[in-house]
């Protein structure tokens, strides 16, 4: 790989891993959601994200050129090699925690993919363009629930506000580019993550206002995913997600 290909591999892996791990997290709700309609909704989001992950990790494998496909990247890497945002690997918790995580991520992903749809890399632009109409559904779904719970009963408000506050410390990581992203931004391939923050904060502030929830005070940011430093939760997700390939290597069905 050339150095730009290495950067692109890394970047496509970050995008793909965030989609994959959030998709896997959401799938844990299957059969356990508060209502049947929500079970269908949350697993639909999961499916969309796994679809995005598949396209992005297939692209990463193609760029790497080492014969690894999207399945091998998903199922045969260990936690240190994963590049998903710390936000998406956080546990589902209650419905409010799941919604807060989704709301923060989807609002960010929408801005990120809007910018990526203009990427100088035609493959990334195509994937972003394909995913954007689906992401619009995710944003609307999550924002509606933030408002419904925030502006609901005393108990639902308490839980929604606690979830927003609890996950806030993981949001800074989305807007902190490293050298890889800076080089790709200079090449017109990746958006400048720093520049996405104002739009994200405006959208989040508007929804939280409607929900009657205060924007949390700045927390000490928790970061590390870019170099594979994850929370303890990732290993547990992987142990479940990767079990079959670990137990029966190369099994296909």
């Amino acid at each position: 790989m050339t150095s730009q290909q290495q950067d692109l591999f890394e970047y496509a892996t970050r995008l793909g891993d965030s989609a994959l791990i959030l998709g896997q997290r959401l799938s844990e709700w299957c059969g356990h959601s508060p209502e049947l309609e929500l079970d269908m909704a949350i697993t639909n989001l999961s499916l969309d994200l796994i679809g995005q992950a598949r396209l992005l990790l297939a692209l990463a494998g193609e760029i790497e050129g080492a014969g690894r496909d999207e399945d091998q990247l998903a199922f045969l890497r260990d936690a240190l090699d994963f590049r998903c945002l710390l936000l998406v690997e956080q546990p589902n918790g209650d419905w409010a925690q799941t919604i807060a995580r989704q709301f923060f991520f989807s609002a960010f992903q929408q801005l990120q993919f809007q910018a990526l749809s203009q990427s100088a890399d035609a493959r990334l632009a195509a994937i972003a363009t394909k995913a954007l109409p689906e992401i619009a559904y995710h944003v609307r779904f999550a924002a509606d629930w933030v408002v419904r719970l925030g502006d609901g009963t005393e108990e639902s408000h308490r839980r929604m506000a606690a979830a927003i506050d609890n996950l806030w410390r993981f949001t800074d990581e989305m807007f902190l580019p490293d050298a890889v992203e800076e080089r790709l931004t200079a090449a017109g391939i990746a958006p400048d993550a720093t520049a996405l923050k104002a739009g994200w904060l405006a959208a989040v502030t508007a929804t939280l206002g409607e929900a009657g929830i205060a924007v949390p005070a700045p927390h000490r940011p928790v970061v590390g995913s870019r170099v594979g430093h994850h929370s303890e939760h990732l290993g547990h997700i992987l142990s479940e997600m990767q079990f079959m390939q670990r137990a029966y290597p190369n099994a296909e069905w």
Partner: peptide, 13 residues
């Protein structure tokens, strides 16, 4: 509208 998400990705309820 009952739900924006239905039994398959392409359908709403």
């Amino acid at each position: 509208r009952v739900s924006e998400f239905g039994s398959t990705p392409c359908k709403a309820l």
